[in-house]
Write a protein that binds this DNA or RNA. Structure first.
Ligand SMILES: [Mn+2]
Ligand SMILES: [Mn+2]
Ligand SMILES: [Mn+2]
Ligand SMILES: [Mn+2]
Lengths: 210, 210
DNA sequence: GGCCAAAGTTCAGGTACCTTAACTTTTATG
DNA sequence: CATAAAAGTTAAGGTACCTGAACTTTGGCC
């Protein structure tokens, strides 16, 4: 199990979802969560998770949440890198809207070769984050996680760091309100129903006194 | 069976290979030919061809070559369009060499959405041919087949129309010799071992008397 | 026209992934 | 802490694709 393309597309998606579940502080994912995100049945999840455990990619005990092994995590991060680079490419080079890019990347990530991914990365100038503000892991697996908070936990002017790409409708609304990574907003002005999808960082110290 | 993404990737490849076999005047493909091109066993081909026949995409009689039905041809041409647009995109936008582009396109063609294909087509300015000179079918299935001949059948200065992309080594040699679509060569100067991979068109009338 | 090699098919069986239905374990809660 | 709902697993079975081995058909050749 040396590289990501020794895996089936389904296995690639499982690892990616298991990894992503904990990226922003949530607990390890359960069978139910996997079934929901992968649009499959709970029975199918049990089946597949056992296969992944057999390959040494996840640690699994019956009736317990799934966790990645170091080997599984390495491959999961490689898939996340692929996904986010492809999303960035589609938005920057092909005019995709950030709300529609996810599904396309979800399919392409399994078909792109390592070579294509590295060419895209170079062409884009090694971007640090995808269109939603999610950090893009390096080719070596390194990942710089921004320490961001929810608008409810912050005060005053904040830089938008990330908007969850889980719901295209929320992305469209945020785009219309100018709530996009890099933009400055007042924490209190983020609508309540969007707040749980938005991560911000208070504008630092006395640097930007506008 | 309305669109190409109602098919499995394997079915997509079968249709594309069956169609491509006859593109340059060769007879309908046999089981052996399909097995060779698709890197699978003869038994697997029989199995799959029956499935395609069951879906009304091919006409099939035991021990006879396979032919596409009109429905199958429509979908095959759509796949050829995808493949060739992706090849063109990879060469023009991502710096791929024409000898390495085929395998990448072979995978991406199954993952790209119709929307992505049309965006690529527009971004490239609706190219008429792929990097090897193979004509790109229109979104409506129309295809203009250039009437070209082999170097052995021509005389004097010719425009290179197409180089078969079946063998990357031949592509690399042709590239080094300047035998690329659009270039002018003397028919007699195309090396014998490359001639069967090259299609040319005599430079017309007295137009280019150099 | 019969024979034989090549081509093609059938058969038995395997893997990955998926489903529904029945069953078990966990957990929440009164 | 008993119990019911929720979560999770097991079991049985299905589809797509694939393989090797045994068998059948085809087509070229003397
Ligand atoms: Mn995916
Ligand atoms: Mn994203
Ligand atoms: Mn393909
Ligand atoms: Mn080509």
């Amino acid at each position: 199990m040396t590289g990501v393309d020794d895996l089936t597309p389904v296995a690639q998606d499982y690892l990616k979802v298991i990894w992503s579940a904990t990226e922003w502080g949530d607990p390890p994912i359960t069978s139910k969560g996997l079934a929901a995100r992968l649009h499959t049945s709970a029975a199918g999840v049990t089946d597949m998770v056992k296969r992944l455990a057999g390959q040494g990619l996840v640690d699994y005990e019956s009736y317990r949440p799934v966790r990645l092994t170091p080997a599984g995590e390495r491959l999961a991060v490689a898939m996340v890198r692929r996904h986010r680079l492809i999303e960035t490419f589609l938005v920057r080079m092909l005019g995709y809207d950030w709300a529609e890019v996810h599904d396309e990347a979800e399919a392409l990530e399994h078909a792109a070769s390592e070579q294509l991914i590295e060419r895209i990365d170079a062409l884009l100038g090694h971007p640090a984050a995808d269109p939603h503000g999610d950090p893009i892991p390096g080719a070596d697996g390194t990942l710089r996680r921004p320490d961001a908070m929810r608008p409810g936990e912050a005060q005053g002017p904040c830089t938008v760091v990330r908007v969850s790409d889980a719901d295209p409708a929320i992305l469209a609304r945020c785009r219309d309100l100018g709530i996009v990574p890099g933009a400055t907003v007042l924490a209190a002005e983020v609508p309540a129903e969007l707040a749980s999808a938005v991560w911000v960082e208070p504008v630092s110290g006395r640097a930007s006194p506008c």
